[in-house]
């Protein structure tokens, strides 16, 4: 098969639960299929690999019509935490790991995890602010060079 995918680079740009998990599941799944996989965390997606923030990622309860929750209700204090807790419990039942554990597992599969330099500059983050599994903070040019010959997925 010549159209077989052998390499994926996944850009994570959002810091919500529903923004981060699909990217992690795809990266992990790509490695499980024997593909090469890289994750590139940019903008609010950096929360997934931010020490101290990675375990507090929440589902968006405002501006998220798929949740079928009135916007006014979604904006009340604590609603995002309650919904996140509910989803976390459901995911735990399916053996989907919490984000920090998932990040560790994905790094163990041999996938590369990288922070975006422009975003780190913007948010004044250094490599020390990010979890140890992040190999490096790289530029967009380095990301493209690293992604050569593979598919790029933006989430």
């Amino acid at each position: 098969m010549t159209d077989e995918i052998t390499k994926v680079s996944i850009v994570v740009s959002k810091g919500s639960l529903e923004g981060i998990y699909p990217a992690l599941i795809m990266a992990n799944g790509a490695r499980a299929e024997g593909m090469e996989a890289n994750l590139f965390f940019t903008f609010f997606g950096l929360d997934a690999v931010h020490k101290g923030r990675a375990e507090h990622v929440k589902v968006a309860t405002v501006g998220n019509p798929g949740l079928h929750l009135a916007t006014l209700v979604g904006g009340l204090p604590g609603v995002s935490s309650v919904m996140t807790h509910y989803l976390d419990r459901k995911m735990a039942k399916l053996d989907i790991p919490p984000i920090p554990e998932f990040i560790e597992m994905i790094a163990d599969t041999g996938a590369g995890l990288y922070g975006c330099k422009a975003s780190c500059d913007l948010f004044e983050l250094t490599k020390d602010d990010l979890v140890d599994q992040v190999k490096d903070i790289i530029t967009v040019g380095e990301f493209f060079a690293m992604s050569a010959g593979g598919q790029i997925i933006f989430t």
Binding site: R31, A32, E33, G34, D108, T109
Partner: peptide
Amino acid sequence: VSVKELYQLFPKGPAKL
């Protein structure tokens, strides 16, 4: 066998291989 070692043993996908 840890995830890390699994991928060392079966680089092209441990569960699949």
